[in-house]
Amino acid sequence: MTELVNVDIQRILEMIPHRYPFLLIDKVIDIAADESAVGIKNVTMNEPQFTGHFPQQPIMPGVLIIESMAQTAAILVVHTLGADAEGKLVYFMSIDSARFRKPVVPGDVMHIHVRKKQSRGPVWKFESEVRVDGVVVAQATISAMIRDN
């Protein structure tokens, strides 16, 4: 059952250790412990990656889209495990079947959907997709491990 929990930026900063310029989610609008989460990333022209990727036609780098999936998944992990997991690091272990369907550009709002496939001990696996205006722009299966700092 989905909990309509609004995880704002202040709460995100408590839950995961990422900071500007590498914090790539602005809020989480829908989360169900041990199941799924939907993160939001407002893509803006003033982000540092757009000075070089690409100045004449800026697009969000695919690796940063994948990172936004991982950060949304990390929020889901911390929400599921509770306060003891706050601030712990969630390390990538694998990225499988990554697909980029359409460029993400400044002005877009990314809706980052992550769904837990499985978890065994500290290892979690997620199906992820990013949508802009309801259109799937990226997909991947990611695995990560939660660790003490």
Results as ranks from 00 to 15, higher is better:
residue 2 T to P: 05
residue 5 V to K: 00
residue 8 D to Q: 13
residue 9 I to H: 14
residue 11 R to I: 15
residue 11 R to L: 15
residue 12 I to G: 15
residue 13 L to R: 15
residue 14 E to L: 14
residue 15 M to E: 12
residue 15 M to S: 12
residue 16 I to T: 11
residue 17 P to V: 11
residue 18 H to L: 06
residue 18 H to F: 12
residue 19 R to D: 13
residue 19 R to N: 13
residue 21 P to A: 13
residue 21 P to E: 11
residue 23 L to V: 14
residue 24 L to I: 11
residue 24 L to H: 10
residue 24 L to G: 08
residue 25 I to K: 09
residue 25 I to F: 04
residue 26 D to W: 07
residue 27 K to N: 08
residue 28 V to F: 03
residue 28 V to L: 04
residue 29 I to M: 05
residue 29 I to A: 02
residue 30 D to M: 03
residue 31 I to T: 01
residue 31 I to A: 02
residue 31 I to M: 02
residue 31 I to R: 01
residue 32 A to W: 00
residue 33 A to W: 00
residue 34 D to W: 01
residue 35 E to N: 05
residue 36 S to L: 11
residue 36 S to Q: 15
residue 37 A to C: 12
residue 37 A to V: 12
residue 37 A to H: 09
residue 38 V to Q: 02
residue 38 V to A: 02
residue 40 I to W: 06
residue 40 I to E: 09
residue 41 K to Y: 10
residue 41 K to L: 12
residue 42 N to T: 08
residue 42 N to S: 14
residue 42 N to K: 14
residue 43 V to N: 05
residue 45 M to P: 05
residue 46 N to S: 12
residue 47 E to D: 07
residue 48 P to H: 06
residue 49 Q to L: 04
residue 51 T to W: 00
residue 51 T to A: 01
residue 51 T to F: 00
residue 52 G to R: 05
residue 52 G to L: 02
residue 53 H to C: 08
residue 56 Q to S: 11
residue 57 Q to P: 01
residue 57 Q to D: 12
residue 57 Q to F: 10
residue 60 M to C: 02
residue 62 G to A: 09
residue 63 V to N: 08
residue 65 I to H: 10
residue 66 I to N: 14
residue 68 S to R: 15
residue 70 A to Y: 13
residue 72 T to K: 02
residue 74 A to K: 01
residue 76 L to G: 04
residue 76 L to P: 03
residue 78 V to S: 01
residue 79 H to L: 05
residue 79 H to M: 04
residue 80 T to V: 06
residue 80 T to W: 09
residue 80 T to C: 07
residue 80 T to I: 07
residue 82 G to W: 08
residue 83 A to R: 13
residue 84 D to E: 15
residue 85 A to H: 03
residue 85 A to S: 13
residue 89 L to C: 03
residue 90 V to F: 12
residue 90 V to L: 13
residue 92 F to T: 06
residue 93 M to G: 10
residue 95 I to A: 07
residue 99 R to E: 12
residue 99 R to D: 04
residue 100 F to M: 10
residue 101 R to S: 08
residue 102 K to H: 04
residue 104 V to D: 01
residue 104 V to P: 00
residue 105 V to N: 04
residue 105 V to P: 03
residue 106 P to Q: 07
residue 107 G to S: 14
residue 109 V to T: 15
residue 109 V to W: 03
residue 111 H to Q: 12
residue 111 H to K: 14
residue 111 H to L: 11
residue 112 I to G: 07
residue 113 H to K: 07
residue 113 H to G: 06
residue 115 R to G: 09
residue 115 R to E: 11
residue 120 R to P: 00
residue 122 P to W: 01
residue 124 W to Q: 03
residue 125 K to G: 04
residue 126 F to W: 06
residue 127 E to Q: 06
residue 128 S to F: 02
residue 129 E to W: 09
residue 129 E to H: 10
residue 131 R to N: 04
residue 131 R to G: 03
residue 132 V to D: 06
residue 133 D to K: 15
residue 133 D to I: 06
residue 133 D to F: 06
residue 133 D to T: 10
residue 134 G to R: 09
residue 137 V to F: 09
residue 139 Q to F: 12
residue 139 Q to N: 08
residue 140 A to S: 14
residue 140 A to P: 09
residue 145 M to A: 14
residue 145 M to D: 03
residue 146 I to T: 03
residue 148 D to R: 11
residue 148 D to W: 01
